Simulated assay, not measured.
Amino acid sequence: MTDIDPRALRTAFGAFMTGVTVVTAKDGDNAPLGFTANSFTSVSLNPPLVLVCLANSSSNYDALVAAEGFAVNVLSETQMDVSNTFARPAEDRFADVGWRDGPQGAPILDGVSAWFDCRMHKVTEAGDHVILIGEVCAFDSTAAPGLGYVRGAYVTPSMAAQAASQATDLAVTALIEHEGHVLLVDDTQGGMMLPETLATSGEGASAAVARLLQATCPSAKAGFVYSVYEDPKRGRQHIAFLCQAAEPEAMKGTFVPLSRHALDDISDPAMLTMLERFSAESAVGEFGIYYGDQSRGEVRAIV
């Protein structure tokens, strides 16, 4: 079995499993093929297995069930055109898409949020579809946020932020993570806090978090909205973004492990609750979005 770090793989799954994917492989003539899919699922961490589903009516059916392996490319939020290209019939879907061979030989698309290159483990018939189970032999993920698809429409982190940011007084928080560490900055009370800024007049949440990241950790990129809550006493709406940093370096603050000692330094109760939830969710690789106020609300699972 390939030597895969289960913790790193769990982190990649947790960050990207809800996105739109393009499954790619090579046919018998070594020509690339691929299709858009949102039925990408983690099966096992030991051994590292994933599955995708393919319709029996697909033009790629014969080639894929006979392939030695396949790759799952998790598209970034700027790749709607790539999703559309691989979702529609075309003579050469790869003509206008940059790609390279992965370590196992399946095509890896340029600019994706993450990719998983797999050896074919098992092919199972399932009604009018076939289930392709692959063993992950190599993978990589970036800080680029993924592309979602809900109820017949694409969804990106920036769209979600614009929909949520309707309050006049808007505070934007960045929960910036890198390999199990989060970025904390000094607050004004001798403690620590997550990086935060107030949106300026006419500035949306997306622009505010981009400005905040540039000032604190330029290598980080905003992912999905992680928490939305109100502070009625101050007349303020809070939106927290879960962000991924490419490097553990910051212009302000320090990356610290999510230990009890680090959490004890958090002075804001709402931020403390958010970090405790993030620590618990990171351990299992399953995340949710909090809606409510500073003391009461609900977490809606991302499925």
Rank of each mutant, 00 (worst) to 15 (best):
E135K: 11
D27V: 13
G105F: 08
F116M: 13
L9R: 01
A12N: 00
S113D: 08
C137E: 13
D268W: 01
E203F: 07
E68Q: 13
S58W: 07
S165Y: 00
G180N: 05
G14P: 11
D92H: 05
L212S: 00
K252I: 01
D117Q: 02
N73Q: 11
A71C: 14
M251L: 15
D101Y: 03
V150N: 09
A163L: 12
P32H: 10
D128H: 07
V172I: 10
F70M: 12
F13L: 00
A167D: 08
F16T: 09
A114T: 06
P195E: 08
S165W: 05
I266L: 15
A167N: 01
N30W: 05
K233D: 12
T2R: 15
C243P: 01
L54G: 04
A246E: 12
A144M: 05
S57F: 10
P218K: 10
S42V: 09
D265Q: 14
W115V: 05
P257T: 11
G288S: 13
N46T: 12
A114W: 03
Q189K: 15
L175A: 11
F287G: 00
K26C: 14
N56F: 04
Y61M: 13
L212D: 03
A126H: 12
Q237H: 12
G34D: 14
M192L: 14
K252D: 10
A63H: 02
S267G: 11
Q294H: 04
G34I: 15
S282N: 03
T254A: 11
E135C: 09
K252S: 14
T200V: 06
G148R: 10
A250C: 09
L147H: 02
F35W: 15
A8C: 01
F70C: 10
G102N: 08
A164G: 06
A199L: 04
F116I: 07
G102E: 07
E177A: 10
V72R: 05
A63R: 04
T254I: 04
D265R: 14
C137T: 08
F287W: 02
L242E: 00
G34Q: 14
M80N: 04
S282Q: 04
Y154A: 06
F94R: 06
S295I: 11
S219L: 05
D117V: 01
S295V: 10
R234D: 07
R211P: 11
R296T: 15
T21S: 15
R119Y: 04
E281H: 04
A153E: 14
G292F: 06
H261P: 02
